[in-house]
């Protein structure tokens, strides 16, 4: 139990830094040093940050248990959606001082989204494979499900 709480707190700390501290200071930096820039940190970053942190903390807390599967898949799907939204689906346009610049990279975005989608599919698949290997009995710990190294004694 103590290990789970520590893992969850660790996940919380990392996610807070990634989703709140970094975007906040990036926004401050842009406003202060590049005031004329058309680039800005989108507000939905924080909303995604809250959701992603909740899912990641849940996944860390329930690591190795069946209940961690929806948390893991949810976090992976959310990161795919986030990447899609933050890049505008790979179609960015900026107009500044009479100059319009368009950057299109849809195929790259599809490619970058692929690992997240695969991770979302992999979590339940791993759980099912471990469950089947255990002879259909419910398993309370499959390290692969949580994406980490299997813990001894957790599997049947």
């Amino acid at each position: 139990m103590r290990k789970r709480v520590i893992a969850a707190l660790w996940a919380l700390a990392i996610n807070l830094v990634l989703w709140v501290v970094v975007p906040y200071y990036l926004g401050v930096f842009l406003v202060r040093y590049v005031p004329a820039t058309p680039l800005a940190v989108p507000s939905f970053v924080y909303e995604f940050g809250v959701l992603f942190t909740a899912l990641d903390v849940g996944a860390a807390f329930f690591q190795g248990m069946a209940v961690s599967v929806p948390f893991l898949s949810g976090a992976a799907l959310l990161s795919a959606v986030y990447l899609w939204l933050v890049t505008d689906g790979g179609d960015l346009h900026v107009t500044t001082s009479g100059l319009s610049i368009g950057l299109s990279f849809q195929l790259l975005v599809y490619l970058f989204v692929l690992p997240s989608l695969w991770a979302a599919a992999r979590a339940p698949l791993s759980y099912l494979i471990w469950k089947r290997a255990a002879g259909g009995e419910p398993i309370h710990g499959a390290g692969e499900v949580a994406g980490g190294s299997p813990r001894e004694g957790a599997r049947p």
Binding site: L108, L111, P115, W118, A119, R122, L125, I129, A133, E144
Partner: peptide
């Protein structure tokens, strides 16, 4: 416990996808 074959297959796919993304990027 022995790692099931299916898990190895999932690992291979994961590594392949990651490699493809890294190489293209």
């Amino acid at each position: 416990p022995r790692t099931p074959r299916g898990i190895w297959a999932l690992r291979v796919v994961t590594v392949t996808v990651a490699l493809a993304v890294v190489v293209v990027a």
